[in-house]
Nucleic acid binder design. Structure first.
Length: 557
RNA sequence: UGGGGAUUCGUCUAGUGGUAGGACAGCAGACUCUGGAUCUGUAUGCCGAGGUUCGAAUCCUCGAUCCCCAGCCA
């Protein structure tokens, strides 16, 4: 296949694939993404998807989607549906190559019969506890099962009756006859089939025996003609077993290559732990915007392109590495800066009255939608005598290097006028509740004809035109870099991972904001309308903050 | 002497016998109607010890550290 595209990627997998093509070991490239439908996809899966689909695409090959649904008690159709939606959202397509390990149950059964006939598999009556005891330990060999030497006929009979449902759960297993003294514990007569009287989400009650993942995975790859079976590091120990099955059954052998799964700082990625966050109510669900799931990222406003770019940025290797979440954040900002239209929103409002602005007058000022994209055009923003500005943009006593509004100082209202603070109104407790300012009519649009400069430009919203909104500012879910390292990861939760600002005001153009459309609230961060948002009650999620060099200056004193 | 893997800036990642490069993070500065973006500059690294070689991150030897495996989970 000399005319197929050849990746220029230099990671070790692409290098191996290229060598396989060059040597003729394979003449095409076929990979697969094999999730178990027992949970939601998260950012770690996005890396795997990027590797599986990406490498296939690089070499002009194909990538199958196959659900490894060999355990009916854990798997559900709901997960199947959500996983497919997430992969499509990420931007990958398996065309008509959607498969299920359960599609192969009959074939797998026949493979098992073949192994029994070859004297390579036997029915074992040991209980789970007994089997554990017979298995030995990491440093001591195991012992042969007393049932290991049953005749082929007896094994065939028993296995047939297992399938027929004659035996209760857990009473018997079908095991491969390999080597109880093997250093690799996976080779110590591993279980191939177990009895589970449970309804499978696809095969219903057709089966009461189910293949173990290890007895299904390699053969499924073989059946599909997968050339490169890419998986995570913990399956390195299983590769000899997959090779053994495929060899003993006598079928086509794919090549398995293992790579390191994603570990992200300030994040937890185990399904078990994510499930606990949901079950214990620490988040609102699998798509709570603080979760590392793809559905959560989507809801939060993270573009799929940012996740794809992130995956490309981190590369693929065998090092067990901890990726700094700042790299993900960089990929998100980078994409959002390119595509998000800018709007003004005041999150913590402070009322401002322009004393010399005519009562009842309204002007419409032109604002740029996206300075990074001229094609995004402009919009009109209404201006009037009473405005809201950000509380943080005023300090009665300014700290050093503070450029924003302060008594007597002139600043620019973005796209509008220069204003100067002439008076500060406080309530009985001394809190600032209103600013009295004057504006310079000559600075309309934001530039002074006399050439004078201001050090700061702040955003604003006209009070009579402002649309009230709830703003949800999300932050990292965990306060420690490696929550997995704690005795209990729940103690590492960041108590400030969500800040709800119920009294925000946004400019009128935002009244019709749609979920999924990214917006930059100028000087605040990137936001998008939440699923909870309705025309009558706007709700915005903060996707990510803008970089804030003032915060850095201020924190240094 | 159980088996399997890994080790390059703070964090990732290239480099496959010939000047250790890139990204993120950091620091300093320029510019700016977002203290955003952009631009410039800058410090920091081959796990260790021997050996082979004119020359070693790369080859050899010995060692250290870390990760995975004892589900009828995947």
């Amino acid at each position: 296949m000399t005319d197929s595209p050849t990746s220029t990627g230099t990671d070790f997998i692409r290098t191996a694939v290229r060598e396989d093509l060059a040597s003729g070991r394979f003449t095409r490239v076929s990979t697969r993404f094999p999730p178990e439908p027992n949970g939601y996809l998260h950012i770690g899966h996005a890396k795997a998807i990027s590797v599986d689909f990406g490498i296939a695409a690089d070499f002009g090959g194909t990538c199958n989607l196959r659900f490894d649904d060999t355990n009916p008690v854990k798997e559900e159709q709901e997960y199947v549906d959500n996983i497919m939606a997430d992969i499509r959202w990420l931007g990958y397509d398996w065309d008509d190559r959607l498969f299920f390990a359960s599609d192969y149950f009959e074939q797998l059964y026949q493979y098992a019969v073949t192994l029994i006939q070859k004297g390579k598999a036997f029915v074992c009556d040991l209980t789970a506890d007994e089997m554990r005891a017979y298995r030995g330990t990491l440093t001591e060999p195991g012992k042969n099962s007393p049932y290991r030497d049953r005749s082929v006929e007896e094994n065939l009979d028993l296995f047939t009756r297992m399938r027929a449902g004659e035996f209760p759960d857990g009473t018997r297993t079908l095991r491969a006859k390999i080597d109880m003294a093997a250093g690799n514990i996976n080779m110590r007569d591993p279980v191939m089939y177990r009895i589970i009287h449970a309804t499978h989400h696809r095969t219903g009650d057709t089966w009461c025996i189910y293949p173990m993942y290890d007895f299904a995975h390699g053969q499924s790859d073989s059946i599909e003609g997968i050339t490169h079976s890419l998986c995570s590091l913990e399956y390195e120990d299983h590769r000899p077993l997959y090779d053994w099955y495929v060899r003993e059954i006598g079928i086509y052998a794919p090549r398995q290559i293992e790579f390191a799964r994603l570990i992200l700082s300030y994040t937890v990625l185990s399904k078990r732990k994510l499930l606990r966050l949901v079950k214990d109510g620490l988040v609102t669900g699998w798509d709570d915007p603080r979760m590392p799931t793809l559905s959560a990222f989507r809801r939060r406003g993270v573009p799929a392109a940012a996740i794809r770019n992130f995956a490309a940025l981190i590369g693929v290797a065998k090092n067990n590495s901890l990726i700094d979440v700042a790299l993900l954040e960089h990929a998100i900002r980078n994409e959002l800066n390119r595509v998000a239209e800018r709007r003004m929103a005041v999150l913590k409002p402070l009322r401002v009255v322009i004393e010399n602005y005519p009562e009842g007058q309204v002007e419409h000022l032109t604002a740029v939608n996206n300075p990074e994209d001229a094609g995004a055009g402009t919009r009109e923003v209404p201006f009037s005598k009473v405005l809201y500005i950000e509380r943080d943009d005023f300090r009665e006593v300014p700290p050093p290097k503070y450029f924003r509004l302060t008594p007597g100082r002139e600043v620019r209202l973005r796209y509008a006028y220069f204003i100067k603070c002439v008076d500060v109104v406080k309530d009985a407790s001394g809190e600032v509740i209103e600013l009295r300012c004057t504006y310079d009519p000559a600075t309309r649009g934001g530039d002074a004809p006399d050439g004078r400069k201001v050090k700061a430009t702040i955003h604003w919203v006209s009070a009579q035109h402002a649309v009230p909104a709830e703003v949800r500012n999300y932050d990292r879910l965990f306060k420690s870099e490696r929550p997995d390292d704690a005795d209990d990861f729940m103690t590492e939760l960041n108590p400030d991972s969500l800040e709800v600002l119920a009294q925000a005001y946004v400019e009128p153009a935002l009244a019709s904001a749609q979920p999924g459309t990214p917006i930059q609230f100028e000087r605040n961060g990137y936001y998008c309308a939440d699923l909870d948002s309705t025309p009558g009650k706007l709700v915005f999620n903060r996707t990510i903050t803008l970089k804030d060099s003032w915060a850095k200056i201020e924190s240094k004193g």
